[in-house]
Design a protein around this nucleic acid. Structure first.
Length: 513
RNA sequence: GGCCGAUUCGUCUAGCGGUUAGGACAUCGCCCUUUCACGGCGGUAACACGGGUUCAAUUCCCGUAUCGGUCACCA
């Protein structure tokens, strides 16, 4: 048996949806798990929906989340993107046409010349007659203008005259089509439910169905892992493999459950993102036509590992109680059998939790630049070592790196006001004495101004003043930051610096009565 | 509407005939802590419904309901 080969085959019609990212991820995990290859093919057979920049966006998105493509668009094999190229369907036009002609030749497909108006008329007629389905199929094709109803001479004449035509599949009238989906098991569909699908459009380009089958075959794809929205057309694809003579090497199918709206009905859409205030695209995207900007997970501050971890568990579970997975661990644990059948609601809260987990694991040095940038933007001086310390102090408290600066406001800004509730309950003669005593001790402070030394100084000063430290700590925090809550006070003081600490204590003494 | 698929706590899920139905997010409480957060401990919370099959059904089968997908010269 040949090695596993899977593909991710998006259409460049806009930014890659997060559901597409998950599909790509599952393909990738499976490929790596099996020691196989992951291909990227661009399905751009609809000229009308082509969006400039979309292909680049897709490639950049996959790269960002850590999905490596072995072969196909965006890959450099030295002399092209790989041995089965081109990997852009618009560049493979002739291949599809040849296969379609072959189907016509063996009587499995036929030319059709019906105009849009004629098709509409047929559908309306059927609907009026209450027919079960208004389809172009084994029953209706006899009444239409096609290679089955027209004389061969006329067909040739029409084509010769340049009249537009399509090639349709000649779907059998009564036949049970079976398909063994790796996730759902056997799926049976009667051919009467399948219409005579257009294989080659009047512009000469193939539809998804033909192009997909031809390419998957030519590219040696062994497993087709795609969204559940393709399940209804899967039997049609089986038929195509059969008629093309490729059924024995037909890939196995695995139809993935869909990502659903956080609440309400339907699948996750861009609209949900706007409503819920979260992204559904991996990267920020600016629509080239309207200029509208759609938010991206990357720009929102999500770490690629966190996104991958979150996405991997939406519709799949290793069966253990492990929650945090690196990409390598996912590859190791992954299996198609463990994929769910039912759709999964997209809950951004869980995504935030994952991000929090990964943020706190980040080295302080990695988080620091974000703080520096925001501080600089706010007109504040923030040397790298200070930013590193702040990151270490606060990273366990946030879900996103950009929240660090906001959490650090008491470090950057001396209090301009004091929390009244804390003042009312904690500010008294004792606390006033404590603050003064601490200030005095700090005035004579020598050595390195670090948390441990500060702790000692404070303890000593309180002991000398005869004040129980626990009783005045919150007042001390109030004097230093203006608030009753916040991160470790000793570390905060270390970062703020001795001079500033003394100044703040001084200020509290004069401001608070 | 036809066809196809699905249905375990609010959400993501474990479970593959016999379990006190487990974990995570969220939520609530307690502990830790000078405070908040983190962390630890604990609580509330689920097998859609009705029939079968079986000694025994969350688990198998059939209906019903609900939800989802799909019915284009879009993918």
């Amino acid at each position: 048996m040949s090695d596993v080969r899977v593909r991710f085959a998006p259409s460049p019609t806009g930014p890659l949806h997060i559901g597409g990212v998950r599909t790509a991820l599952y393909n990738y995990l499976f490929a790596r798990k099996m020691g196989g290859k992951m291909l990227l093919r661009i399905e751009d057979t609809d000229q009308n929906r082509f969006v400039p920049g979309a292909e680049e966006y897709i490639i950049e998105s996959l790269k960002w989340v850590g999905i490596q493509i072995d072969e196909g668009q965006g890959v450099d094999w030295g002399d092209g993107p790989g041995p089965h190229g081109p990997y852009r369907q618009s560049e493979r036009k002739g291949i599809y046409q040849a296969e379609a002609e072959r189907l016509v030749a063996v009587g499995k497909a036929y030319y059709a010349f019906d105009t849009d108006e004629e098709l509409d008329a047929m559908r309306q007629r059927l609907e009026a007659a209450n027919a079960p389905a208004a389809q172009y199929n084994a029953i209706t094709r006899g009444q239409m203008k096609n290679g089955l109803t027209l004389k061969p001479d006329e067909v040739n004449a029409r084509i010769g005259a340049g009249e537009p035509f399509v090639i349709r599949l000649k779907t059998p009238r009564k036949e049970e089509v079976r398909l063994n989906d790796l996730i759902r098991g056997w799926v049976n569909v009667h051919s009467s439910a399948i219409d005579d699908k257009v294989l080659i459009k009047s512009d000469g380009l193939p539809t998804y169905h033909l192009a997909n089958i031809v390419d998957d075959h030519l590219m040696g794809i062994t497993h087709v892992i795609r969204g559940e929205e393709w399940l209804p057309s899967a039997p049609l694809h089986v038929l195509l493999y059969r008629y093309l003579g490729w059924e024995t090497t037909m890939p196995q199918f695995a139809h993935l459950p869909l990502l659903l709206k956080p609440e309400g009905n339907g699948k996750l859409s861009k609209r949900d993102a706007d409503l819920g205030g979260f992204p559904v695209f991996p990267l920020q995207w600016t629509d080239p036509f309207t200029g509208n900007v759609a938010r991206g997970f990357r720009e929102e501050g999500y770490l690629p590992n966190a996104l991958v971890n979150f996405l991997s568990l939406l519709g799949w579970n290793p069966g253990t109680e492990q929650e945090l997975f690196s990409m390598d661990e996912l590859i190791d644990a992954f299996s198609l059998e463990k994929i769910h059948k039912a759709g999964a609601r997209f809950d951004i809260e869980k995504a935030k939790w994952f991000n929090h987990q990964y943020i706190r694991q980040q080295p302080n040095e990695v988080l620091a630049p974000t703080i520096e940038q925001q501080a600089t933007a706010a007109g504040l001086a923030c040397p790298p070592d200070k930013a590193v310390k702040i990151a270490g102090l606060l990273k366990e408290r946030v879900s996103f790196a950009r929240e660090l600066f906001g959490e650090a406001h008491t470090i950057f800004y001396a209090p301009t006001a004091y929390d009244e509730a804390i003042v009312a309950t904690k500010w008294n003669d004792d606390s006033r004495r404590a603050v003064a005593a601490f200030r005095d001790a700090l005035l004579g402070f020598e050595g390195e101004f670090v948390a441990e030394a500060i702790r000692h100084t404070l303890a000593g000063a309180m002991q000398q003043a005869g004040i129980k430290q626990g009783k005045i700590m919150q007042a001390m925090r109030l004097a230093l930051t203006g608030f009753g809550i916040g991160p470790d006070l000793m570390l905060t003081m270390e970062i703020v610096g001795r001079e500033e600490v003394i100044a703040r204590l001084e200020n509290a003494l004069t401001s608070l009565n």
